[in-house]
Design a protein around this nucleic acid. Structure first.
Lengths: 195, 195, 195, 195
DNA sequence: TATGAATGAGTCTTCATTCAT
DNA sequence: TATGAATGAAGACTCATTCAT
């Protein structure tokens, strides 16, 4: 993504980055196991062996991707932990989550669409845990089953909404807002009864 | 015709079925590409070649699974087409969908969690198309973007709700009802504004 | 080839024949190893197992084909053995050979085009031996190397001529005559010098 | 650059070559489909995977063999195109062809004996086309069918002559000359009548 | 006279990974 | 900071063959 400041064909120091970028692009499209190192290397114009200079294993490349992604989510969780469990806080959680979602759309998309793979990718549980933690902040105390479902839906329908509408003709930012509105409504309702 | 009282490898007409069962079990757990024919065969106590007697390819096994699953959904779509586009109809669509969902939970789970794989599985588009058709029946005429999102969420949060709560201690049927309630609420709201 | 005298779908007694016919057709086109029993069976509308009722092995089917073919050649050899080694006899050998060639064109074509396969087909040496025996009758005594080549060419250019011209627009019988004429010329020449 | 004095597996740039050599040797003897990559690899003391480092497919190995072979024939065709269609030119075509034939005898032998395989080897048509082009240069204008056959025979009896006499006790170069003489005679005759 | 079901050996091919240079 | 050459393990698939029915 860094577009380099030198004028030469940028090929110094940024290889690691480029590997990550290409890998993300490919696995988002084809999945993890369908994406081979050969393919990644070819697209970069380097040898497979070169990948091994920068990363220890194939899994490592992907893990590095997710580690970068986790940061904003960890921040969000840390922030949530500090706040009072007010409805306002929860709205803010959703808002921030929606922003993280657009910020790393391909990655989220990958996770959303490749959960089976995630499970074996060592970060799998890792991420699932994060999500559950996040969900835990949403429902009111002693929520009914229905209201807990509402909160789960709030989070996941953001995924669904964004990915299904991906090729919609609507404006991305409008889309994010619409999706956020629906999610917010869901937790508001969860609080109306429970509260 | 003897229903097998001996201890020898029971050679009955059920092998095809058993292949399907084991395959579903395995791909639901590990994903499609991580599941090898060797593994399937081993678990069944037959040779890989035996699988090829019953199915033409690995993909074929999985496709056969989905073809069976498609029927109830096709029925649902056919039924929906005949009904007036009333709110009542839409509620019923969701209800029936929720029932299909529990009826073929592992399969739906697989689809939900392996969309990247689905895309290359020839039934992929197939199923995506079904879903879109189904979604098309839900929103009111001239729905706002937000209301369209609500309808999408209605359908997909049923998936999310069921699979996230999968290991919950709550009763499955109660869960289905909770999930259905949330989904129904979503389309009711979509109609309140739009209508 | 027997077109049956009954009016029912001819399916009694002639299966063996049909297997041979289809097999010949397929191996002539694709070669021996590329032609699978599955393919043969499918084309006949029977199971692979059925083939094994009629023949002991795949090789057996092909061998049976050649055994049938060998008869005219053996007859020819037997006949040649009885004749005086006159030029006239040699002409007659070529003529008879040319007739055998059209009579079993696909089979000869197969042999001509799949000599590597023939070598492992147990009839291989078998046939090669026949050919050499036949060739042995052609040259005059104490022929020069060149004249021996002429005799070899006489026989083989009949193959070449027939198969290369196979799709020519010319009349088959005319073709045979042309090819025969060239072959005859060759042995006549072989005798002009040597004789 | 060290030309290998140690006993260790000599890892030099010659592996590609060696693969080609061994492959030619094996397919010439057993045919294409009977020759497995396992066999080739074993004989070379490498793994099958190593073959795939050097060639994309099994077919590719063989194709590479033929591509090398094609060059002299293409040169011959190119040369023929420039010459006047005199009898002298045609003699020269045959002479050069006979030299190409000894230069790549095993390969020609393979082609000659495995035409069915050739047909599926993507270079098949390729080569057949070359031969037809070459043949097209030989007959006089408005040749009779018989004379066309003579020209075809001229070319093909060179194959036949060389391969049948392969194990003859005669001297290879003498053999080539004998075969060439017969072929030349054939086109001379084709011109005597037609001219 | 055939079939349904299965097997064992083998095919080509791909992959992630390694290591000397 | 990379590459050239190779490996070992595994993958999907095909084939000729068998045998109880």
């Amino acid at each position: 993504m860094v577009t380099g400041s030198s004028s030469k064909p940028q090929r110094r120091g940024n290889t690691r980055q480029r590997i990550q970028d290409v890998t993300l692009e490919l696995i988002a499209e084809q999945g993890y196991e369908k994406t081979s190192l050969r393919e990644i290397a070819e697209r970069l114009g380097v040898t497979k062996a070169a990948l091994y200079y920068h990363f220890k294993t194939k899994e490592d490349i992907v893990v590095s991707l997710f580690t970068d992604l986790m940061t904003p989510i960890d921040d969000l969780i840390a922030w949530a932990k500090e706040q009072p469990p007010s409805l306002e806080t929860k709205r803010e959680i959703l808002t921030r989550y929606s922003l993280a979602l657009v910020g790393a759309a391909p990655l989220f998309r990958f996770m959303h669409e490749n959960q089976a793979t995630m499970r074996e990718l060592s970060i799998g549980e890792n991420f699932k845990g994060r999500m559950q933690e996040l969900i835990a902040y949403l429902p009111p105390e002693d929520a009914t089953l229905t209201d807990r479902v509402r909160c789960i839906s709030a989070l996941f329908s953001m995924h669904a909404g964004m990915f299904v509408l991906q090729d919609d003709e609507s404006d991305p930012e409008e889309r994010r807002k619409a999706v956020l509105e629906v999610a917010t409504d869901l937790i508001v309702q969860a609080h109306r009864h429970g509260g």
